[in-house]
Amino acid sequence: MPRREPFSRNLIWILIALWLVVTLFPFLWVLSLSVRTPKEVFTAILLPKTIRLANYLEAWSKFGFTLLFRNSVLVSLSSVAVTVFISALAGYGFSKFRLKGGSFLFHLILSGVMIPPVAVVIPLFVFMKRLGLFNSYPSVIIPYIVFGLPVSTFIFKSYIQNVSNDILDAARIDGCGELGIFLRILLPIIKPAVATVTIFTFMTNWNEFLLAVIFLHDKGLYTLPLGMSVFVGQYSAPWQLIGAGVVISIAPVLALFFVLQNQFIRGLTAGAVRG
């Protein structure tokens, strides 16, 4: 294979090694911070003399991680479930039915990717207040569903377009209803698209902060990012506990990522390739 890059090999390895250090150092440092005794917080650079795992227990109860995880799981899973279901339905409608105005409606939904959530927070705030949903799970779940729709609908439409009509027709001849075809025939075929959309929307919602900080005021409703930001700022928490808190918050995501690397990379960059 001909070499493509216009640089010398040694220079390349040095630069890559340098960037790896830059990428990984913050993680290693936080990991080290998370097991330090209060005495060593500001003295050690990477290797503390004594390791104090009790920091994790303390951080867990101080930040209230049980509740934060429960809220984040609840909010993310429910919004993802709805987004996946209704955007898959829409993807099927847009790709396998000849609809008058279908192309217009599809591009209308797709144009939603251009709208930054920050541009609509104020009317959403008014809306949620009027509906009496302000400061409740639905006040973030609903926007999460909507902001996930454009990319998800696009992914499903593109994927379902390539599903052969013969399979669907065969089911139709066998007397299967349209919804039955969708649920029993199509859904199993489009599993890879479901995976991509699930990862993309789940990670977006799991990490979301702006809407959470505006709509969720009760501590009992805080999601993981909101809780971390509030607690770290409010109580000027000791650094070793912040370190442990960071490790606790990113550990589940990292674990999932290492199991499903390729799906994650495909899912997270899915937002870029819509056209």
């Binding site: 209704i86 829409a90 396998k96 000849r98 939904i109 939603g112 349209e178």
Partner: peptide, 26 residues
């Protein structure tokens, strides 16, 4: 391409309603 147009509209309806109510309207 299917010609069961009515069913087609029903499939896109939930997404469209959500989109209009919670993004276009705001």
């Amino acid at each position: 391409m299917r010609t069961h147009r009515f069913a087609g509209y029903l499939f896109i309806l939930p997404a469209l309603l959500f989109f209009l109510a919670f993004l276009v309207y705001p």
